[in-house]
Design a protein around this nucleic acid. Structure first.
Length: 576
DNA sequence: GCCGTTTTCGGCCCGACTGTTTTCAGTCG
């Protein structure tokens, strides 16, 4: 529902519709996405629908129509005028609704493929605003887009996996059901979903009932294959799902095989051969007589090969096999190690909840502390705080902190913007009142490399800056490659004692295990934060933790595993 | 298209930056 509303907003924007009407559709999409109310249960009641902020008379009717017909008349109407593939064009960096409309009007370009061809043929020359730089930017954007299209963000895949597993478990007879593949390895994106199930109900004489059950999964949109012990289908989102039902004796071998990665498996199999074994998805067996050695669990397979069990996140053939042999695998950080989340927003700026609500969400997660770090004034769109409002906000945060004494600590903080000359947009006097000052690179993303590096380096020289915000990775979609001399910045941050933030939002993860390893090498202290704009966003921490695990990080490498008092003491000391 | 109210319609988050211009449109957060 949210997607249909958001797409309608995009199409209206390409058609240069009323910007306020467009915003209404965006707001409604957001409201539908974040509401905790099960919309299908109140879809028949327009009054109830209109109680949701952002949903009025018109949107209530739209929601009812989507619920009834699965689509939206306005969207259908717009799609007669514009092609659905134009929505993909909007995902390219530097591409907005005006440019999409221009390409369509002038050259009938309505898809990424058509744009690619037009660039190759030099057909864009002469179009207003299309100089060499913009064309090159789009060319690179297309290259990037093609690498990631057809893949799904890990959180979407995980939610789909959890729902499917809950459904499968309704049939008795399963003992273990796990996702394998890149989801289990904690990659940023997954191509398809591999679900592996076992238990007495998967034994040879009983498996057909389990196959039927899996094939009857209601959200399955297209059935692709139904075999003896495997069911494949595609969900409405386009995500392909393979469910494999395995006898208990070979479950570990299958899990190992389907978890991958390919390179890891090649190495493990070579190692098996050297020892006179052969490893397949069914079992580890002797080469000479084919007799069974191991297969029920991954642990027994790795052990038979002289290896400690290797966490899936490390299975990339990056030295994990050698480390497992030497019993030197790191003890990876876990979600339970995190004691605080020190980057979040409230409705003072662009967050959706109050200070108290965010704090209560922190308590519910068992945190010992959080920091409220709303935006500063430069981010005008979010109603960012100026000096005066920032001080008032600090006062309110301290009041909530006092109110919740004994339950959680609430630190006052700010996510402060770096201006064009490397200065910060709030005064030092105000920053001095904050426990957590995050200087964020988020508005510098589109700048030339050297300029961006200089600005960030200058910004962290400000003695009140304690955390550098968002320097690792980059947004997965609609984002140019990261343009900053990260090595230079991390080296300076380490010297200054400025902690480096890793952002735990799933759509912001890409290549950041590489960046995180670099940060560790440089001696940086790392904090992992969700940048939550809603109480529900606090759960996103799990995806960031996976990222840290992929970078081989332990609890000791991460700052916010410390208890509250030690955490503050571990931050860069403030000038007295 | 939503909201709040003045109950009938006006207001709705805005500033920096880039690449193209030669004064600004478009994108971004």
């Amino acid at each position: 529902m949210a997607q249909l509303l958001a797409e309608t907003a995009d199409l209206l924007e390409i058609g240069a519709g009323d910007p306020f009407r467009i915003r209404s559709y965006r707001r409604a999409a957001e409201a539908v996405e974040t509401t905790t109310i099960q919309l299908s249960t109140i879809a028949g009641d327009p009054k109830k629908l209109q109680e949701i902020p952002g949903i009025g008379k018109g949107m209530a009717a739209n929601i009812q129509e989507i619920e009834r017909a699965g689509t939206l008349p306005l969207r259908e109407e717009l799609l007669l005028k514009y092609k659905p593939t134009m929505l993909e064009l909007l995902r390219l960096p530097g591409m907005g609704p005006k440019t999409v409309a221009l390409l369509w009007d002038a050259l009938q370009i309505g898809s990424v493929e058509e744009l690619e061809a037009a660039i190759a043929a030099g057909r864009l020359a002469g179009l207003p605003r299309f100089g060499d730089k913009l064309v090159e930017k789009l060319r690179k954007g297309i290259e990037d887009y093609k690498q990631n299209s057809g893949r799904f963000l890990i959180d979407d895949a995980e939610i789909a996996a959890e729902k499917l597993i809950a459904y499968l478990l309704e049939l008795p007879g399963f003992t273990t059901i796990l996702p394998a593949g890149s989801l289990r390895r904690g990659r940023d994106t997954v191509g398809d979903l591999d679900i592996l199930a076992t238990g007495p109900g998967c034994a040879e004489d009983k498996v057909s009932a389990a196959v039927e059950h899996a094939a009857n999964y209601p959200p399955a949109a297209t059935m692709l294959a139904k075999g003896q012990n495997k069911v494949s289908f595609r969900l409405r989102s386009g995500l392909q799902v393979d469910v494999r039902l395995l006898p208990e004796g070979s479950y570990g071998a299958a899990l190992q095989y389907f978890t991958g990665s390919k390179m890891h498996n090649v190495s493990v199999r070579q190692r098996a051969l050297k020892r006179g074994y052969t490893l397949s998805e069914y079992a580890l067996a002797r080469v000479d007589d084919g007799s069974f050695v191991a297969g029920a669990t991954e642990e027994e397979i790795y052990a038979a090969l002289g290896l400690d069990w290797i966490p899936p996140e490390l299975r990339e053939n990056n030295g994990e096999i050698e480390a497992a042999e030497a019993h030197r695998l790191p003890i990876l950080i876990e979600e339970a190690d995190i004691r605080g989340d020190v980057h979040m927003h409230t409705h003072a700026t662009d967050g959706k909840n109050s200070i108290l609500e965010m704090a209560e969400a922190g308590i519910a997660r068992g945190y010992e502390y959080i920091a409220i770090t709303d935006h500063s004034k430069n981010l005008a769109m979010t109603n960012g705080l100026d000096d005066k409002r920032a001080l008032e906000h600090v006062k309110r945060i301290r009041e909530v902190d006092a109110e919740l004494e004994g339950k959680i600590r609430v630190f006052p903080g700010i996510e402060v913007d770096i201006l064009g000359d490397g200065a910060l947009d709030l005064s030092d006097e105000v920053l001095a009142q904050m426990d957590v000052v995050i200087a964020s690179v988020h508005t510098l993303f589109n700048q030339p490399e050297q300029q961006m590096t200089e600005r960030v380096l200058r910004a962290i020289e400000n003695p009140y800056v304690r955390i550098l915000g968002h320097p690792t990775g980059r947004l997965l979609l609609r984002r140019e490659p990261f343009q900053m001399d990260l090595t230079a910045v991390l080296r300076r941050a380490a010297v200054l004692g400025v902690a480096v933030e890793h952002n735990a939002f799933p759509d912001r993860l890409d290549l950041c295990d590489r960046d995180l390893r670099l940060a560790k090498e440089m001696g940086c202290r790392i904090a992992i934060n969700t940048d939550s704009h809603h109480t529900s966003h606090l759960t996103k921490m799990r995806y960031g933790i996976r990222q840290l695990r992929r970078a081989w990080l332990s609890k000791q490498d991460v700052l916010n595993t410390l208890p509250a008092r030690k955490f503050l003491a571990a931050l860069r000391p403030r000038p007295t």
